[in-house]
Design a protein around this nucleic acid. Sequence first.
RNA 1: GCGGAUGUGGCGUAAUUGGUAGCCGCGAUAGACUUAGGAUCUAUUGACGUAAGUCGUGGGGGUUCGAGUCCCUUCAUCCGCACCA
Length: 1052
Amino acid sequence: MDYNFNDIERKWQNYWREKETYRTDNISDKPKYYVLDMFPYPSGAGLHVGHPLGYIASDIFARYKRLKGFNVLHPMGYDAYGLPAEQYAIQTGQHPAITTEKNIARYREQLDKIGFSFDWNREVRTCNPEYYKWTQWTFIQLFNSYYCNKANKALPISDLEKHLSQHGTDGLDAACSEPLNITAEQWNAFSEKERQQTLMNYRLAYLADIPVNWCPQLGTVLANDEVVGGLSVRGGYPVERKLMRQWSLRITAYAQRLLDGLELVDWTDSLKEIQRNWIGRSEGASVFFNIENSDKSFEIFTTRPDTIFGVTFMVLCPEHEMIKDITTPEQKEEVDKYLNWALNRSERERQAEVKKVSGVFTGTYAINPLTEERIPVWVSDYVLAGYGTGAIMAVPAHDSRDFAFARHFNLPIRQVVSLEKDVTSDPSTWTESMDAKTGYSVNSGFVTGMKVKDAMKAVIDWLDEKGIGTRTVNYRLRDAIFSRQRYWGEPFPIYYKDGMPYPIPADKLPLQLPNIDKFLPTETGEPPLGHATKWAWDEQSQTIVDNTLINNKRVFPLELSTMPGFAGSSGYYLRYMDPHNDKEYFSAQAVNYWQNVDLYVGGAEHASGHLIYSRFWNKFLFDMGMSVKEEPFQKLINQGMIQGRSNFVYRANFEKMAEYYIWQLIKDGRLGADFKRDYKDGKRRFDFYSDHKKIIIEIKRKESLEKLAEVYQEYATVKGFKILLISINDVMNGTDNIEKRIKDCISGEYTPALEQEDDNFTPYPLFISKNIPGREEFTMPIHVDINMVNNDILDTERFKAWRPEFADAQFQLEDGKYVCGWEIEKMSKSMFNVQNPDDLVEKYGADTLRLYEMFLGPIEQAKPWDTNGIEGVFRFMRKLWKLFHNDKNEFCVSDEAPTKQELKTLHTTIKKVTDDIERFSLNTSVSNFMICVNELASCKCNKRQILEPLTVLIAPFAPHIAEELWHLLGKTTSVTVAEFPLCDESQLVEDSCKYPVSFNGKMRFTLDLPLSITAADVEKIIAENSDAQRWLDGKTPKKIIFVPKKIINVVF
RNA sequence: GCGGAUGUGGCGUAAUUGGUAGCCGCGAUAGACUUAGGAUCUAUUGACGUAAGUCGUGGGGGUUCGAGUCCCUUCAUCCGCACCA
């Protein structure tokens, strides 16, 4: 082989490793550039071609930036804690640390083969104690912080304690679980435990009884983003709502900043939109409604304060604590019944039955503060406990859910908004509510006639004045549940004293994950860490000691839950800056140099998980004065999924096939009788029926026919039909005799229903090539391994060897080939469409794989993997190689001066490729390389002045071949530190332009004209040009549009 | 239902500000060299038409000298959210 990619790639990968080519320093005069990939979770399945797509793109960019003179940070590591390894451990008993290690080794091997420019010195693994030390450290900082809304940042919890001891909660504006009212005297009189309980209300990492997503099958709670449609994302197990004492992160304190920060970053609109939805900010008012004949009141949140005059009932969520206080004795039984039902439904059931209206009246009335009307208070599960205050004012005329509820329970509906001023209609005639926030208030007291927007403001002002309501902002975002009842995660650096959590001293970190041998919950239902025998904290010696020593005086139990997957991935990008620092998370010097990630590449599936948590983590560290940028990821690119291209073979169903053959024989009256298919008479069904000749034909397996022959015969006699029973076997053995039987039957000759034939047909696996007529009717598609299919042609021998049951498979071919069907599906083992990058590297080389993955299409678009196309890229690589070599494969480059045309080719390519890289249009850069090499090949250009810059230009894409050619060109330093060529615009200047000439906008022909030409010249030329005259057909042009260097358009 | 994205040959795609629609590659067809070809090279390859030419960027309408690109409308596919008051 002329271009020996195997040797070349191995050689330069070794060279780069030995010379530490990709090592990056934190001290440099060069400008910095930080290119980051979302680090992978090392799964047991290894990488498929979809994974490296983003890595290749970011690698190209990192290499490009290096060549452009930047100091580039381009690290890689592993998100190594997680559920799959633990599930695997439960099944096999293998310790997750071992499988994780093994999977990482496999990932690394695969990654190395592709030639990435990662600085592996900086590798981090989230399960590594040197790494998770800082995850734990950050957790303690969160624990020791609260969020001050006045300063709009996190502050030390000690500040809060000081405030409480001086002023109580007076003047305190802090993010909290529930508003408290404490005086300084009370605080100062509090016991230690009471104080701790109070502080817990404010800590950014806090312990609370909260309704969580409990997944019994996984034995753990899950974060909101880990649950979709009431099922766990990992594994798809049912999730239920459960009240549990859990660690949470008060991410809601940062909701507004997380929202505002989106304005600062260069992400796609769709991704920003997903985050905005996830944060879910809505502005409105909270209003207090008094209970009739009671001193109680409850608070509701509404985004439509303007509709308060249209409130006809109130609804509380079933979890609302006030229900028991306000339910009247008469209604108690019914309410209890409802609560019992509603509160015990799984999350999944509830979500599945969203459209079903249910609820119960409490018997109590509230008073509308504006109208003083009595309005009934109901309970329904369409009001969610987790949002707002768990209570609403229902305005059925202008809220579709309230509307459905009112219709169901026959509650009044009152219109208070109208599209046109003073025009109302009767809501009882409505089929749906009018939810839009447009139009004018009607029937609404002092806001009647106002525009909706103004009415909102007026109502809030009124409520505010009276002290019964305020302008409020609500977020859909929930605090992040941070406990997992799991083993394979970071241990919490927390022990329990008198039931309250205390962090272990930061200088004693990391708190190492203890070894256990059973990964299931304990018999008492504790998390797996309950199996650890040495898992207690000695407060005096500050060491981990044996559980038997726990006395709750000096030795205390340690926390048994571990942290979730997003704990370790939330700040890893910062640790890469200074990964070996054992004194601090990262040094100030490092973070001041690297700042934040300039380019972050990864999948869109992290939009509402990792990318929110990371931003929160970063903002907290920013408040701590550690990270230096408000946003961690400046530009973000979501690489699209690579889908699999599955291949199918079509297995014949002999019965259907026989039916098809017979139908071909008899349809359209071919044998002299009209037949219908699928004749039904009551429960009986027959394959073919001729009303005209009173004939029934039934096709079945011989054995069934023999069994049923009598019954059929009887039926036919009764109905006066003739019946033909044909065995599948006979059809498969040839239809000549059958044709005769049918003809005989039609012509009225006696024909026995069942004719005994001596055959020995046994069914066998038969596969029908895709385009054989009738195939759709009598075959079933079966996934076939794409590795035995080439250009949709099946390798039948390999197919037979694939599975024992296909060993004697037979095929109906077309043109001597078996053509497979195909479909685009998810790439997955079960569909046999997984393409492994190693195999392709083996066959074509890493450079070809890199180029091809980019060539597939725009980086952000999902696209199917089609192995066929890789050949074209491989041909291109060989063509490139041949530019530098003669027919004998000897290196052969001339020092001759290049021609103008050659220079133009080179500089056009430089210009295009540079532009393309800058806008991440890497598929078009590959095309442009192809165009360039095609042009150079056609003029047999082997000139150094052309090829040398070209080598550097292509180095980010195909680093191995570039390095080889670079050294063949006589260079002694790596091409990775060369200088990226600049486009010399003067080489692109032309003195003439091939103008497309259009007539009334339709392009007809081209004219080569000098650039110096003027509009007047053009008119003259058109008037004299014979082609133009032909198109004008004797008419005179009304107007001639002339755009220099673009087009001539003749209007007539 | 709401929000976002995308619709271009047989397939993946290209067309940076409105200016020659289909670049590059796959596949296909024909030919050359070959014992052979799943190697290489050459030519053709949007549809219809012998041709001149006509039609063509999901459909319909509009703006413009000129629209894949801008505007309106509609359809389809994918993704996200979905009782969020």
